[in-house]
């Protein structure tokens, strides 16, 4: 093999000089993390923020902790098979609370609306917010509305903040070698549904987003002592969450391609588009890390819930290596890293 290649330090500096916000800074992947580390954490330093979990844990008094989370929704298109930006803005925030071991209680909702936005679309979105919140058992307790001039927004953006009561503190420190990795259902449905809804690809398929509030399914798991940690794999998908888990714990994660639940049509479409379902967004799934002893019980409880019927044990935590590895269908192994490129911007 012949390989001749040189790059001077100056060339490297010029090539790396990225001093503007790019769309990928919102991907939830490597660029987002760079932004958080280089800008946000440089100035924002509270102890509550530091763990960078989906929700912060704050002390109310000696006996009570609350989980607080906030999320902004900029999805395009606003209406997609299986949901709309309103439903998503409730589910996403409820899920961030419940995977933090909290019972979601209250939500705030803020709207940034573009001049000219159709009132009937706004009403449809707000009706979804109301219905989703009601079925998830959370109350919308305050809100805000701002309108920006035409062409200065993209229809509507929504922010929701959620507050819940922590009943099962989740801590990555509890994760250890031998633990099992469980996914609550098929992966990549949301990313695929939104990609198709954008009509950039000429694909006609009936894939719906999995957008759903997970508190009804996940709260009963709080009683199982072996349940150690949960996360909803939204932007960046299952792979990104598990790479982060590996980095935070110093442990390795080995997942199995064969055991990964992927809908047949999703797999087909993603093969065609060149995306990997492991990196695609989900809006109604959770990854659960549980002790080996509790894994059967967790799976059984999940499968007893309509949202968990496709739940599967997909991998193990190991001390044999660091990082995330995939055991492929043919038995090969490859390393999965964080995505640098944003597969689908504005997915949530």
């Amino acid at each position: 093999m012949v390989a001749v290649s040189t790059v001077t330090p100056l060339e490297q500096d010029v090539l790396l000089n990225m001093n503007k916000i790019e769309i990928g800074h919102g991907s939830g992947g490597k660029l987002t993390r760079d932004l958080i580390e280089n800008i946000f954490l440089k100035y924002l330093k509270s102890d509550e923020l530091k763990p960078l979990e989906d929700a912060a844990s704050i002390n109310l008094d000696h006996n009570h902790k609350a989980a607080v989370t906030t999320d902004s929704y900029v999805i395009r298109p606003l209406f997609f098979p299986g949901g709309n930006i309103g439903k998503l803005s409730v589910c996403g925030t409820v899920n961030d609370l419940v995977v933090s071991g909290a019972v979601p209680k209250y939500l705030t909702v803020g709207f940034i609306i573009e001049e000219g936005f159709l009132m009937k679309d706004l009403e449809e979105i707000v009706r979804s917010i109301s219905e989703t919140a009601e079925s998830a058992g959370v109350k919308i307790v305050t809100g805000d509305t701002k309108v920006v001039e035409k062409n200065k927004g993209d229809g509507i953006y929504i922010n929701t903040t959620g507050i819940g009561e922590i009943v099962k503190p989740m801590d990555l420190k509890n994760v250890s070698a031998g633990d099992k990795v469980i996914i609550t259902g098929t992966i990549g449905d949301h990313g695929t549904a939104v990609a198709i809804a954008r009509e950039e690809f000429n694909i006609d398929a009936a894939v719906e987003s999995d957008c759903a509030a997970l508190n009804g399914m996940l709260e009963p798991l709080f009683d199982i002592a072996g349940v150690k940690w949960m996360r909803d794999p939204t932007r960046g998908g299952v792979a990104t969450v598990l790479v982060e888990l590996s980095e935070a714990t110093g442990l390795g994660v080995l997942i199995s391609e064969e055991d990964m639940p992927v809908r047949e049509d999703v797999r087909f479409i993603q093969d065609m588009l060149g995306y990997d379902p492991l990196y695609l967004a989900n809006e109604g799934k959770a990854i659960i890390i549980t002790s080996a002893e509790s894994s059967d019980r967790v799976l059984e409880m999940l499968k007893g819930h309509p949202l968990g019927k496709d739940a599967a044990l997909i991998g193990n935590i190991t001390a044999d290596f660091k990082g995330l590895r995939l055991k492929t269908i043919i038995g090969g192994e490859r390393v999965l890293d964080m995505l640098e490129e944003d597969t689908l911007p504005r997915i949530c």
Binding site: V2, S5, L15
Partner: peptide, 30 residues
Amino acid sequence: IPGCICGNIILGKAYPNACKLFKKVCTPRT
């Protein structure tokens, strides 16, 4: 292209990870 060995890679004379730009300054994004 300074440092790029695509020609050799296409001819099977080098693997991608033999290139000094690979994963460093040369990524799918850039």
